[in-house]
Simulated scan of single mutants.
Amino acid sequence: MDLENYFARIGLSAAPTLDPDGLAQLQLAHRRAIGFENLAIPLGEGVRIDSASVFEKLVVQGRGGYCFEQNRLFSDVLSALGLANRPLLARVLLGLPEGVVPPRTHTLLLVNLGGDAWIADAGFGGSYVPPLPLEDGAQVQTPDGAWHRLLRSGERGSLGGEWRLERAGPAGATDGRSAPHGVWQPQYVFDLAQVAGDDLEMANHWTSTRPGTRFTTLCVASVVLDGGFAALSDRQLTIHSQGVSETRAIEDARDYAQNLRDLFRIALSDEDAERLPPFS
């Protein structure tokens, strides 16, 4: 892990403190600087989630990635800083009808902070999920005005998950799948089962190749802003800042690539943007 280059990528001049405040600072800087995106899928690049490939793409090349890439990188960084962590797998409930049980297509991290268990997630594209202590009822507010909480949701091994992450806040500070009101809404459920490397490879393969899913039918991107959130879904761009949301249509591939570079911090050329389904 080349921490110097990573810190330069996310705009930190030094390593944060190894405590809850430092973890929150590090994750927020990561999400503000490294955009969430699935563009490797429609571009036919494939999604590799080994440490070397992820570092090359997200740090060296200045691209973004989705959860299996983002949290691979974040896990490596935490390990290099001396924070023990391991991956967990989750079922994303955002935007789904009640009672639907989706597959485990999201990964997050379980982090040991001074003997206490915390969850950290640098790779959820639907909204900004801050670090939270693994405690029933734990709550925290994010700069976009949303509240987040963890609840014990079921028994170990249950389909409904052992833990449930919920959010209450402005729908504009999400990728558009949130209902337009501020009551508590589920984001995802997870349990604490051990996750092997091949479990992640299988989930990543399904997520990046399964026909008819969000990641194989749409071009999506998101990034955390100072007090807000920005999201792209094909040609629709939504920017939520200081409580106000604005949506507009992307004009062409050049406009798309320019927004990726300037707003989402994703280095994609005009030529590659022209190859994406909304423009090709």
Rank of each mutant, 00 (worst) to 15 (best):
S13P: 02
R9S: 12
I239S: 01
L3S: 00
A273S: 04
L18G: 06
Y128G: 12
D199P: 00
M1W: 05
I49Q: 08
P277L: 11
G169D: 02
A257V: 00
L225W: 14
V195F: 10
R86P: 01
G227A: 03
T174N: 08
G44C: 10
R167N: 02
L26Y: 11
Y188P: 01
L23N: 13
N38V: 07
R152D: 08
G243V: 04
A14Y: 09
G44K: 12
E155I: 12
T247L: 01
A249M: 07
G64N: 06
D255R: 02
G62E: 07
S222P: 01
D50H: 08
R265V: 14
G11L: 04
D116S: 08
V100C: 08
I266C: 05
M202D: 15
A146T: 02
L110I: 02
A80C: 01
G161Y: 12
T238D: 07
P87Y: 00
V60W: 15
R275I: 02
R265L: 14
P211A: 07
A52E: 14
G95V: 01
F264Y: 12
F7H: 10
N5Q: 15
L73S: 12
L73W: 11
T247Q: 11
G176L: 05
P278G: 06
T213L: 10
R235I: 13
R156W: 11
E162L: 05
D19C: 12
R177M: 10
R261Y: 00
